[in-house]
Design a protein around this nucleic acid. Sequence first.
DNA 1: TTGTCTGCAAAACATTTGCATACTG
DNA 2: CAGTATGCAAATGTTTTGCAGACAA
Lengths: 146, 146
Amino acid sequence: MSDNYFSKIAETGIRPSVQRVAVYTYLREHPVHPTVDMVYSALSPVYPTLSRTTIYNTLKLFADSGLVQVIRIEDDRLRYDADTSPHLHFKCRKCGNVFDITDEETLRKINADCIALLPAGFSAERIQTNIWGLCSTCVQKQKSAS
Amino acid sequence: MSDNYFSKIAETGIRPSVQRVAVYTYLREHPVHPTVDMVYSALSPVYPTLSRTTIYNTLKLFADSGLVQVIRIEDDRLRYDADTSPHLHFKCRKCGNVFDITDEETLRKINADCIALLPAGFSAERIQTNIWGLCSTCVQKQKSAS
DNA sequence: TTGTCTGCAAAACATTTGCATACTG
DNA sequence: CAGTATGCAAATGTTTTGCAGACAA
């Protein structure tokens, strides 16, 4: 498993150091779209010398190489996602969780529809859709409270 | 014109102070999706006592009331848009400009398609699509350079 | 006059940078 | 050995907060 990640990093042309494999593995195995700090808090006990700077360096490197995507769904910090297939994100304003909304076929079509709206000559490289609202659990809670 | 904005703010239940009208007017008349600092730099010469804090307060107030929308298209700062009709944003990675992509009918449909993908019980309140790439001008420049 | 709004100064964070040390091929 | 990666400490830049004075109903 981890070996897979090692190869995946190497294939991207990035030297798969212990730290980098650890970060990528964490992202893969905890698809909660973590922030830098969440990654650091999780890995720090396992790799006591690990520094936040390395997490920043690593995630930026991964993002620039297209290995992970940066999710801009918060007002004050970035989140990261190792799943780069077409999917959109939903953030519940009550519990704060970020959910993946996946339906690859439909989303490919939606993305194509969006890109079709661009003026002539524009070239799209990346597209991201975010939805904010209440998740079903929080909708339930709100109902039973009132 | 400015009077319109005064009423528009008042209708939202917000007291239309001089500063607030100035900020809203600026957003309306300069649809470049400015950052806090851009608004401050533009208005500061006209209202010498104006402070950044007030711009922050005002834009947050407006955003919470739905009078403006927050655009999360940069990595390190927020942008604001007084146009709340369905439209998406395109950021050119070379010149840095943010363009509006508008086609209200199509976009209403696209948004509906996205929301249809949400799991049962989820309730959507806000949706935002961003595209990154190169604008036609920068594509041209790149071509003629090579 | 009473509550709200403004704006200064300081604080709080997230992120970046400089640089010395530690790896790794 | 040479070049790259790591991580500490300090800097940067955006946004928030505390608070006192100004303003408006």
